[in-house]
Design a protein around this nucleic acid. Structure first.
Lengths: 187, 187
DNA sequence: ACAGCCATGTAACTTGTTACATGATTTT
DNA sequence: AAAATCATGTAACAAGTTACATGGCTGT
């Protein structure tokens, strides 16, 4: 749901053609969320279908230039003024995974947590290396920071989960460690 | 991509029918990510198509019970042992929005940030209220904590953005405040 | 009798995504 | 001449989501 708005926002700065939009999107967000060119064209088609943009023939060179309509401008304005709703956040795969792991017999939650932490810390290192080496513009820098912040939060949460589970194991001493056999589940 | 795996993981604890799967999923994740019953059935159909589950006639009562196949069990095992990849994280709408806001003339980034912070802090309060009032099981509690951690990280990032932008405004004194007119863009 | 939950499903749609085809222009 | 990049598109599919239809059973 964000590619649509992003393209609209870019088009509000002036008419653009498809390929150009991909380039500018990636300029601002780095290689974080690579945007397939094909998706730009499909999205533009759908935006046109919904009356948010209009194709505008040539631009001197043979480029298929789009510009935003009034309705499109309204959309962008609404997007910028309305905060991202946390009422129905996108499903967090990691949270779901752990929630299910702690209630699935035969799954060693400790290992799941440890492996995830390794992976996340590796990602964190990549981010900081990028910050050091790359000379990034403002937007791309902020996006990177956002990744850093959320990766750090993820690690903190993983630590918290470990502590929480240790505590739960003490209170209700279910001997998880003895669960060596193959789980006798689902037949 | 996580509903599929979640249903599989639940089915590994024993044969279930559709409605039951919805109930159990929501038990573990609370009302955080409500799961439409319809989606359970469509997902089950697709899982069966892919050979990961099998329908298993009756269960005594007229329920359409599914059980996981060997291939399905492999899938679950792989899901639990492979960390969630951060190489291509889902697009973060807020990060994209701010990245575009800082480079779109006529958009007051300060306002965007402030409104988002209000919304996120309100969500944070909801989470802590839920933790206080509700008596939640382990999994649902951890999911809530995950929401808290990531909301906190979001607020920290927003603060960081504000500081970063103030610094940028000082260095390169573009008088953003004078940008009162309607943006002359896109015609 | 009626409301509400249990239960199963289908049709239709949106968004995201990849793979492929095609050709022009530019660089090596 | 070959490789890479620019540029536009289409077909097909995956995943999520909603709206609707249908019927049984339960509690008031």
């Amino acid at each position: 749901m964000s590619v649509k708005q992003a393209l609209l926002a870019l088009l509000e700065q002036g008419p653009r053609y498809g390929y150009q939009l991909r380039t500018e999107f990636e300029q601002r967000t780095g290689s974080t969320w690579p945007l397939n060119v094909g998706q730009v064209y499909t999205t533009l088609t759908r935006l046109e279908r919904d009356g948010l943009v209009e194709a505008d023939g040539a631009d001197g060179e043979g480029h298929v230039v789009y510009r935003v309509t009034d309705a499109g401008r309204d959309e962008v304005a609404a997007w910028f003024t309305t905060p991202v709703a946390r009422t129905q956040p996108p499903r967090d795969e990691l949270a779901i995974k752990l929630a299910l792991a702690v209630t699935t017999p035969g799954v060693d939650v400790g290992t799941v947590i440890q492996q995830q932490r390794s992976a996340t810390m590796a990602a964190l290192q990549d981010y900081t290396r990028l910050k050091r080496e790359g000379d990034l513009d403002l937007a791309w820098g902020l996006v990177l920071d956002s990744l850093v912040f959320s990766a750090e939060a993820e690690i903190r949460w993983l630590d918290h989960c470990e502590a929480r589970l240790r505590r739960a194991a003490l209170e209700r001493p279910t001997p998880v460690a003895t669960n060596v056999e193959t789980p006798e589940v689902a037949r």
